[in-house]
């Protein structure tokens, strides 16, 4: 544990804990809406921002926030319009984003190590200023996700019903898109563009193996994210592995362990936790409605 006496390790730990807590709190809404991989896509777009930041000698993180936000809003507008061409449009945005990023980084004088830091994360080179940004933005996103839980749950669970309830559905969708962009960008420093979705999605996937409600899933996913963040950094410090990848490895290991335990538990109990839904007698002939 002596490694944590160094400031850079303390900063790395703090960032990982904040991101570990925030990413699943947002990710649960994305999973519920079947947009589990959206974080990945927005990460690709953010990379163009990083490239632009490196090329024009401005802050890559701020440029990434801008690029990711524009990308997220575009994706949301495409999603809203309809689903047929959306798939393809998303693909264009994703690959355009990563290609643009690589080209821009190439044009600038940065080394490939610099690009690697954004692709796979570089917590140990995170500055105090970066950590302040991560803590402030992460806390803002976290409070939004918790405070607006009923409304965000409603739009992700049944968007048409939310509309008929008079909720500002479009504003909430855009809010979700923008907070996703912010989370992706701050998580980029820790786990890297290529692994961001993992922290948003894997703790949720783990939690829902054992939970019964949305609120309990959210709480459990946040706890698991926090654990993955802390244990991942500790493992990285001990074994000198890449911090971002270590955090994700811990998250996925938790998923495997919890899944095996949950399956085993159900086997042992033999009785399922709930009576299976009783098949319904066909009182009514459906005309395929």
């Amino acid at each position: 544990m002596s490694l944590f006496q160094y400031e850079y390790m303390q900063l790395a730990l703090l960032s990982a804990l904040v991101i570990g807590l925030t990413a699943p709190a947002l990710g649960i809404y994305l999973v519920q809406r079947r947009l589990a991989l959206i974080g990945d896509g927005i990460g690709h777009v953010a990379l163009t921002g990083v490239g632009a930041g490196l090329l024009f000698q401005t802050s890559p993180v701020i440029m990434a926030v801008i690029a990711a936000t524009i990308g997220a809003i575009l994706i949301e507008l495409i999603r809203e319009r309809g689903r047929t061409s959306g798939d393809l449009a998303l693909a264009l945005l994703f690959y355009g984003g990563i290609a643009g990023g690589v080209v821009l980084v190439g044009l600038s004088d940065s080394t490939s190590a610099h690009l690697n830091a954004y692709l796979f994360g570089a917590l140990s080179t995170t500055s105090r200023g970066d950590v302040v940004t991560i803590v402030v933005l992460g806390t803002a996103v976290l409070l939004t996700m918790i405070g607006l839980r009923p409304a965000l749950f409603a739009i992700c669970h049944d968007e048409e019903y939310a509309r008929v309830s008079g909720l500002p559905v479009r504003a909430l969708n855009l809010l979700l898109a923008i907070t996703t962009a912010i989370t992706v960008t701050i998580a980029m420093r820790a786990v890297g563009v290529l692994l961001i979705s993992a922290l948003m999605v894997v703790p949720v996937a783990t939690a829902q193996q054992v939970t019964r409600g949305f609120r309990s899933t959210m709480a459990a996913a946040m706890a698991l994210g926090l654990f993955a963040g802390g244990a991942g950094i500790w493992m990285a410090a001990l074994a000198d592995t890449a911090p971002g990848a270590s955090v994700v490895v811990v998250a996925i290991a938790s998923f495997v362990v919890v899944t095996v335990l949950a399956v085993g538990w159900r086997r042992i109990r033999r009785v399922r936790p709930h009576p299976a839904p009783t098949p319904e007698p066909h009182e009514v002939v459906l005309n395929g409605s």
Partner: peptide, 21 residues
């Protein structure tokens, strides 16, 4: 989508039209 929600949580969404977000 696989994210669990309890019956009470789904029904509680009906209160949003009165309570606001």
């Amino acid at each position: 989508s696989g994210v669990p929600a309890t019956v009470a949580e789904v029904v509680a969404a009906g209160r949003l039209s009165r309570r606001g977000i």
